[in-house]
C-alpha cells in the first residue's frame, strides 16, 4: 500500500511456472502409464496405481475445445459473461480455463475448435498481500 516495489507476479495455478523468459506449463506424467496430472505432487497414479513416480512434462501450447458453457451468472462478485471451457491439450492433460476472443453466442462458437494456450495477467486480481498473478487462457487458433 506504500512505496514498496512491486514484487513479480505469481503463478495462478501450480502447473504454471514463471522461472524462464516466458510462462510455461508443467504437468506430472506417470513413469508407468504416461497419464498426466495437474497437481504438483502425488503418491501414486490414479489410473494405474503405480508408485514408480512421475516425470515433469511440458506439453504443446495448443489443444482442442472439448466442451464449454457461456456463464451469465456466477458466484457473487464474479464478472460475467465469460466462457468456461474444457480443452484437451495436445500431448497433455485436459485443462479448464476461460476461452476468450470468441463471441458470447453458441451459434457462433465451433464446439471443437482448435485453440492456443496463452498467458496473461489474472484479470487484475490481487491477493491479500497485493501480489499480481499470471493465468492461462484459451484463444482460437484460427484467425478471425
Amino acid at each position: 500500500m506504500t512505496d514498496t516495489p512491486a514484487s513479480p507476479p505469481l503463478p495462478a495455478a501450480s502447473y504454471i511456472h514463471l522461472d524462464g523468459p516466458e510462462p510455461r506449463l508443467s504437468f506430472l506424467k506417470c513413469k508407468s502409464c504416461g497419464t498426466m496430472f495437474l497437481e504438483p505432487e502425488r503418491l501414486a497414479c490414479a489410473r494405474c496405481g503405480s508408485r514408480e513416480g512421475f516425470d515433469a512434462h511440458e506439453p504443446k501450447y495448443e489443444g482442442t475445445l472439448h466442451s464449454y458453457s457461456i456463464v451469465h451468472r456466477s458466484f457473487p462478485g464474479t464478472a460475467v459473461p465469460f466462457i468456461s471451457a474444457v480443452v484437451d491439450i495436445d500431448d497433455g492433460p485436459s485443462l479448464k480455463g476461460n476461452l476468450r476472443g470468441v463471441p458470447f453466442d453458441a451459434d457462433r462458437i465451433d464446439g471443437a475448435m482448435r485453440v492456443r494456450i496463452v498467458f496473461d495477467d489474472a484479470l487484475g486480481r490481487r491477493d491479500a498481500d497485493g501480489n499480481a498473478y499470471i493465468s492461462h487462457f484459451f484463444e482460437p487458433l484460427a484467425a478471425d
Partner: peptide
Amino acid sequence: ASIPIEGLMGSTSMPATFAEAGREYAA
C-alpha cells in the same frame, strides 16, 4: 485460493459444470 479463480479459469459453479456435461453430449 490465494485469488479467486472463478471466471479466471472457467467456472466451477454447478450450473456451468452441468452445462459443460450437456454440451459434451450435444457435441
